[in-house]
Each structure stands twice: as C-alpha cells, then as structure tokens.
C-alpha cells in the first residue's frame, strides 16, 4: 500500500481542514466587515457642483439649519434650498466670485443646481424628518457633525439596525426641541441624558416603535 499513497498524504486531512478553516474564517470575516452599510455607505463624499461649506455657514457664521432647510419641520423630507435663497446674501457677499458662478446662473435661469444627494435610504423606507426633529431627534444623530464638514460626507450607516438601535432606546438620543439644531450640544452626562430622555418620551408620548410598518409601507 505504501507504494500507492506516499507518506505525506497522512497529513493531508489536517492540511485540508486547516486550509478550509482559514478560507472560511476569511470569507465570513470579509463578509461581516464589508457587506454592510457601515462600509458601503459611510465615507461617501461626492464632489458637489458648488463647493458649499457647511462649516463656514453654520459654525463660523452661526446660521441655523432652518435658514436654508426651511421645510424640515413641516415636511417628511428636508429640502435643499433653491439657489434664489443663496442670493439673499450672495447678491452682495462674494458678488463676483467665480466659485458662485453656477449659483448666480441657476438663480437667474431657474435651472436647479445639480447637487448630488449624499444620504439616500431605500425607496421602501419612509423616514419622516418633521416627526423626528419636532420630537427631539437632532440632525446630528443621522447626519453626523455636518456643521464641521467642508464637504458633506456620509457619517452614519443609516442601516436598519442603526434605525432600530434608536427606536428601541429613544431615551438615549431624545433631547429638548430647542437643542435639535445645535449639533454640538450634548447632555451633561449619560445619566442625565437618560433621565431627561425618559421624561421627554413621557411628555410627548413617544413610543418605541419597532414594527415593520413604522418605517415600511
């Protein structure tokens, strides 16, 4: 028999098992690491047609989010402002600046600026902005610190588990309504956040919705 199978074949089962274990672990680890919005969405930072800086407008100038996104409290989506709104100031500030040429052109002609949408949930997810911002969920919870971004980038995964994390424990995020647009605000401590969050949940009758039709129609 030893003429048919050389001696090293005795090690073959162990080698095959080790190899399979390595490949299997790598495949599972790779899928776990990469096949998730934490990888596929976070970090998306498209080049916009106009280099608008949220950092300058919000942190340096102190504009409120709602100066431009003025429909966010009333509508299910947060509107991108029309370019005529930019001209409220830029008809005088940086009046001739080349970087704003497209804005002036758009405001004059009525053709929208082709902004690239960064945050896009699937079409079967019905996220309502107004109901969240009017009940103490801040912009920062889903969009990250946009006030510090020169170019907007996708900061949170916006995956289903991301939504459910908060829907199951709203008290960890809910804040007073007048702090919703203050993206730097944080409760003094975690215990205070939870106590205040629980109080606000009771006051507003916030339910911890995790049934399908809360978000999917």
């Amino acid at each position: 028999m030893s003429d048919i199978f050389p001696k090293w074949t005795n090690r073959l089962p162990a080698l095959v098992l080790t190899g399979a274990a390595l490949v299997g672990t790598a495949a599972v680890a790779g899928a776990w690491y990469y096949f998730t919005p934490k990888y596929s969405r976070v970090g998306y930072q498209p080049i916009q047609p106009v280099a608008f800086s949220h950092n300058i407008h919000v942190d340096q100038l102190g504009l409120d989010c709602r100066y431009c996104h003025n429909g966010v409290e009333k509508a299910w989506y947060s509107n991108v402002p029309s370019s005529t709104l930019c001209m409220n100031c830029h008809n005088q500030v940086l009046k001739e600046d080349a970087r704003l040429a497209l804005v002036r052109e758009s405001a004059a002609s009525g053709t929208p600026i082709p902004w690239v949408q960064v945050h896009k949930v699937p079409d079967f997810v019905y996220f309502n902005h107004s109901v969240h911002v009017n009940r103490g969920i801040s912009c920062v919870h889903c969009h990250g610190q946009v006030n510090q971004m020169d170019e907007v980038r996708h900061a949170q995964p916006l995956s289903m588990s991301f939504c459910l994390e908060c829907h199951r424990h709203p008290e960890l995020k809910i804040r007073p309504v007048d702090k919703v647009y203050d993206l730097n605000w944080q409760a003094e401590s975690e215990t205070q956040q939870i106590a205040e969050g629980k109080r606000l949940m009771q006051e507003w009758n916030v339910q911890s919705l995790d049934n399908c039709s809360a978000c999917h129609r």
């Binding site: 934490k38 990888y39 970090g43 998306y44 989506y77 079409d123 079967f124």
Partner: peptide, 29 residues
C-alpha cells in the same frame, strides 16, 4: 477595498437596486 469609513467619491454599491430605487418621483430629484 480599504477600511470602513474610508472616503469614497463614488456612490455606494447597491447589488439589487430594483427594490431600493423604485420608479417613482421623489422630491427635488
């Protein structure tokens, strides 16, 4: 592939976009 959170200029990959992106008009698109 890089690491999680790495900067990307290209839109996120959607493997089966036919449910994610439906034939309906969304606001401001």
């Amino acid at each position: 592939a890089g690491f999680r959170g790495g900067l990307s200029r290209k839109p996120p990959i959607e493997i089966f976009p036919d449910m994610d992106r439906q034939a309906k008009v969304r606001p401001q698109t």
